[in-house]
Simulated scan of single mutants.
Amino acid sequence: MDIIPVVDFDPYRLGIGDVTDENLRELGEELKKAFCEVGFVYLKNTGIDQKEVNEVLDVSKKFFMLPENKKSAFKRGSCAIHRNHGWISVGAESLNPRRPHDLKEAFNTSSLRTDIEWPSDVDGFRDIHTSFFLRCKELSLRVLRVMALSLDLEPNVFLKEHERIGSETNGSTLRSLYYPPVKNEHVKDGQIRCGEHSDYGSITLVFQGHEGGLQVLNRNGEYISAPSIPGTVLINIADLMQRWTSDVFVSAVHRVLLPPAGDSSARQSLAFFVQPDDDVIITCCDGSDKYPAVNAGDYLMARFKDTYS
Rank of each mutant, 00 (worst) to 15 (best):
V143W: 04
P181D: 02
T20F: 06
P276G: 12
Y42M: 12
H254Q: 08
D189A: 11
H197N: 00
E211K: 12
L134W: 09
C284Q: 11
F40V: 01
S172W: 08
Q242S: 06
E211C: 01
K188T: 02
K61S: 03
K44T: 15
Y200W: 15
M147H: 01
G124F: 02
I192C: 07
G190E: 01
G77R: 10
M65R: 07
T46C: 12
F273A: 05
R98V: 06
A80N: 12
G212C: 13
I229P: 04
Y291R: 02
K32D: 11
Q268I: 07
E185L: 02
C36N: 13
G190F: 12
R303N: 13
P259Y: 12
E29L: 15
Q50H: 09
Y223M: 13
V253N: 08
D189F: 08
R13C: 07
R175G: 09
L258G: 05
R13W: 03
R76H: 01
F125Q: 01
P97T: 08
P259C: 14
R303M: 07
Y42E: 11
Y200I: 15
I48M: 07
T114D: 15
C136M: 11
V19K: 14
I3Q: 13
D199S: 05
P11F: 08
R126M: 03
K188W: 07
V122H: 05
V274P: 01
A148E: 03
S246G: 14
I192A: 01
A80S: 14
A266M: 07
D152G: 04
R25N: 15
L149K: 14
L149D: 00
I4Y: 07
D289W: 03
L66T: 08
G209V: 07
